[in-house]
Amino acid sequence: MKKTLILSFLAIATSTLLNCSSDNTPDVESSFFSQYDNRNFEMGFSTWPYAPTVASVNNTYDFIEANTDVYSEHLDLSVPWDAWMNNTELPTAFTDEIISRKNRKIANAKLAVSVSFLNLSRDDIATEYDGSTPTYTALNDQAIEDAYFKHLVYITNELNPDYLIVAIEGNELLVHDPDKWEQYKLLMSNIRTRIKEEFPSMPISESMTLHNLYNPTVDSPNIYINEVVSYANSHDFVAISFYPFFKGLSTEEDFQNAFDFLHEKITKPIAFAETSHLSEDLTVDSFDLFIPGNEAEQKDYLETLLTNAQEENYLYVIWWAYRDYDELWETFPDEVKDLGKLWISTGILNEDGAEKEALESWEIAFKK
């Protein structure tokens, strides 16, 4: 930004020295977001920390407080099914997690809470705290519904969000275990109805992955797209999870094509519940995966995202992690270490806290 201002000053000074009239002065190249007087959507991050320390958690909340007007508590956790079903004491691992987030609630920012009904593989319900999966006949069993409803009510009462996402990346179930999809829809319809009765003014949604909706690699893609879009448009707002590098998208044109597809299909207000992009190459040998990335590409995606948010009047945008989390990743259990590596370099600060190119773009838009 400072460089742009200096160049602008030099251009004006040179023009004056050459006695050029103001009518003939060339236009100074406009910077990102300069065409907008005010920002009409909210911007924020999830509270995902960069290290396994209290200091990291505190620093994350401090950064969020200074650089956002909305933030996300992303609860992709186990569910204490047994306690909810049998009215027994809740696991301290669960209650401590919720209390910690409640105690750090940011007063001057809106809060979006996302809760996962599905496991990390998105092919079954979330596990119990001991790693087991409760027995059920169908996803919409009354016992499952009642337990999950209690779970959501407890979290909502404790955290008092402005937006509630009652399931994370629900369309992934249709990809990974389509036989459960109709059961899932029946369950979630009942859940949303009951939550709305409990919290009438709460905007409620379920997040969907754009990277597995745009040009999906499924049988009968048009049927799949129409099914997911119809379902998403039945919610109060459409919550999007989007990681364009999962789809091999790397240019401004690639990004914009995905956004255009989204805008053509969606009729409800849009919120990006989680998104980010690589700032360096990603290699995961066990997945036989290599995805190139760099800071300029990450900045291009962020600017494309924020411009679309402005032009299409999104509710909010959540960038997943504000800082690369190499130190936290080192502590991951072996069974999730490769999965956890996928987003490791998607922050707008690097693992040492140094600024990346995308940070300036974030600050320009945020200050509007």
Score class of each variant (00 low, 15 high):
Ser234Met: 11
Asn226Ser: 13
Ile204Trp: 04
Asp179Gly: 10
Asn171His: 05
Ile168Cys: 09
Asn190Asp: 12
Ser230Glu: 12
Gly248Phe: 09
His235Thr: 12
Asn257Lys: 14
Tyr243Val: 11
Gly170Phe: 00
Leu173Thr: 02
Ser241Leu: 06
Phe237Ala: 02
Glu197Ser: 15
Ala167Phe: 00
Asn215Ala: 12
Met188Thr: 09
Asn171Gly: 04
Leu174Thr: 00
Thr283Met: 07
Pro221Asp: 00
Gln256Cys: 05
Phe272Thr: 15
Asp281Thr: 13
Ser234Trp: 01
Leu278His: 12
Asp236Trp: 06
Glu227Asn: 08
Gln256Met: 09
Ser234Val: 04
Ala239Cys: 15
Asn257Phe: 01
Pro221Asn: 02
Phe242Asp: 11
Thr251Leu: 04
Asp260Ala: 13
Asn212Met: 07
Ala239Phe: 06
Asp260Tyr: 05
Val228Tyr: 01
Tyr224Leu: 03
Glu206Ile: 09
Asn222Cys: 04
Glu172Phe: 02
Ile191Glu: 08
Ala271Ile: 11
Pro216Ala: 03
Phe287His: 09
Tyr231Ala: 04
Asn257Val: 00
Lys247His: 14
Pro216Ser: 04
Thr193Lys: 14
Asp285Met: 05
Lys196Ser: 15
Arg194Lys: 15
Thr267Leu: 07
Phe199Cys: 13
Arg194Ser: 15
Ala239Leu: 08
Pro269Met: 06
Asn190Ser: 13
Ile240Cys: 10
Ala273Leu: 11
Glu280Ser: 15
Ile223Val: 10
Asn212Trp: 01
Gly170Ile: 04
Pro269Arg: 04
Glu274Asp: 13
Ile191Ala: 06
Ile168Thr: 15
Pro178Arg: 02
Ser234Ala: 15
His176Tyr: 09
Ser234Asp: 11
Lys268Gln: 15
Val229His: 03
Ile270Ala: 08
Ala273Pro: 13
Thr251Arg: 05
Thr267Ser: 14
Glu206Phe: 00
Ala167Tyr: 00
Arg194Leu: 08
Tyr231Glu: 03
Glu264Gln: 15
Ser250His: 15
Thr283Lys: 11
Ile266His: 08
Ile240His: 08
Tyr243Met: 10
Lys185Tyr: 05
Pro200Lys: 05
Ile223Lys: 00
Ala239Pro: 13
Phe261Arg: 01
Phe259Ile: 00
Asp288Ala: 07
Pro200Gln: 06
His235Glu: 12
Glu197Ile: 09
Ser189Leu: 12
Ala258Trp: 04
Phe242Ile: 02
Asp179Cys: 03
Ala271Thr: 11
Glu198His: 14
Leu174Phe: 00
Ala258Glu: 10
Pro200Met: 05
Val166His: 09
Glu197Gly: 11
Glu252Ala: 14
Ile168Pro: 07
Ala232Ser: 12
Lys185Pro: 01
Val228Pro: 01
Asp177Met: 02
Lys247Arg: 14
Glu206Gln: 14
Ala258Lys: 07
Asp254Pro: 13
Asp281Trp: 06
Asp288Asn: 14
Phe259Cys: 03
Lys185Met: 09
Ala273Ile: 13
Phe255Lys: 05
Gly170Glu: 05
Ala239Gln: 10
Glu169Val: 01
Gln183Phe: 08
Asn215Arg: 13
Glu264Trp: 02
Ile195Met: 14
Gln256Ser: 15
Val166Thr: 14
Leu186Cys: 10
Arg194Gly: 12
Leu186His: 14
Leu213Val: 03
Thr267Asp: 10
Pro178Ala: 07
Ile225Glu: 00
Val284Asn: 03
Glu182Ser: 13
Leu278Glu: 12
Val284Leu: 09
Ser189Gly: 15
Tyr243Arg: 10
Leu173Gly: 04
Leu174Met: 02
Asp281Lys: 13
Thr275Gln: 09
